[in-house]
Amino acid sequence: MIRVLLADDETMVRAGVGAILAADGDIEVVAEAADGHEAVEQVRRTRPDVALLDIRMPRLDGLAAAAEIRRVRPETAVVILTTFGEDAYVERALGEGANGFLLKSGDPRELIAGVRAVAGGAAFLSPQVAKWAIARLSGDGRLSRAAGARERIAALTEREREVLALVGSGLSNADIAGRLHVVEGTVKAYVSTILQRLGARNRVQAAIAAYEAGLVSGDRE
């Protein structure tokens, strides 16, 4: 069972998102919060697998709450729930290491897929957010970022680059283990080493490095 904390200052949104999650028999909403501070306290108390956080909340916004949750319980994966067009928030969140990004206007199936993905150790971007991120990587400064990413990735072994490419493709540790015919613990060790060598906070940042360096194609729907 995947245990989820749901934090949003709008009661109707919490009810709607909670109903979608409850429809999946493997997901349980164990706590709700109306602001970022309460979300952090609920994480301390209930120890969920996933914290689903709105960006705009009183007292402590979703990004600040995400940073605090990573500090007090790094085992809890953080998914940011955002509204399309909040590019500045998405960019900041990408830099601060959230595990996933979902749009409130997205397909309910994306919500389930995103929660499942991050609970399994993968990163998840809704298609619209992924396209925005990829477009950003193709904009100003692309060449310098690509050169920097290639330089960092050059320090990885061939196997580590292979694992990084699979991380960039959105595969979970279990999926990568199956693809490479190794045990999941071995994949976890590889990912930990890759994050450390790249200076990445989590799999989303590692995936972006994989895109920038050309290990993964941005041509996807």
Rank of each mutant, 00 (worst) to 15 (best):
R116P: 07
A213H: 02
R203S: 04
A147K: 09
E91T: 15
A77V: 04
K188D: 09
A117K: 06
G85N: 13
L156I: 09
L63H: 02
L166W: 06
A213E: 02
N99G: 09
A98M: 13
M57K: 10
V4K: 07
A209M: 11
I194D: 00
V17N: 01
S144N: 04
A210C: 12
T46V: 07
D175C: 14
G16F: 05
S172P: 05
K131N: 06
R152F: 04
L81Y: 06
A65T: 10
G106K: 12
E38N: 04
V4Q: 03
L156T: 09
R71I: 12
A34P: 01
A174M: 15
T193M: 06
V167I: 14
G185N: 10
S192A: 12
R142S: 08
Y190N: 08
T82Q: 03
R71E: 13
A177E: 01
A113Y: 11
A165F: 10
M57C: 05
V40R: 02
A34E: 15
I208C: 03
I2W: 02
R47L: 09
V30Q: 02
V43T: 11
G214R: 13
M57S: 07
G18W: 07
I55P: 01
E162S: 09
T76M: 06
V79C: 02
L21H: 00
S169V: 07
A65Y: 00
G85S: 11
D87G: 03
M1F: 11
A174V: 11
A165R: 15
K104W: 12
E160K: 08
A33F: 04
L125W: 05
E158H: 06
R136L: 14
L195N: 03
V204H: 02
G218S: 08
G199C: 14
R3I: 07
P58C: 09
A123L: 07
A88C: 10
G199H: 06
W132M: 09
I2L: 10
M12S: 12
G120H: 13
S169M: 10
R45A: 12
D87E: 10
R45N: 10
G121P: 00
G97H: 04
V191F: 06
V216W: 05
L102A: 05
D87M: 05
V115W: 02
A23K: 13
H37C: 11
D9K: 11
A64I: 10
D8V: 04
A209L: 14
A7H: 04
A77E: 06
D54K: 05
E110W: 05
A7R: 00
E41M: 13
L137I: 08
A66H: 02
Y89L: 11
G16Q: 04
A117N: 04
L164Q: 05
L166M: 15
L125N: 00
S172F: 07
R161S: 08
A147C: 06
P58K: 11
R179V: 08
D24G: 10
A119S: 14
G95F: 11
A77Q: 09
N202W: 08
R201M: 08
A213N: 06
I80W: 01
T82H: 03
R152S: 07
R145V: 05
E41K: 05
R161L: 06
A154Y: 11
R220E: 03
V79G: 06
R116Y: 04
Q196P: 00
D35K: 07
L6P: 01
R203N: 11
S172A: 15
V191W: 03
E151Q: 12
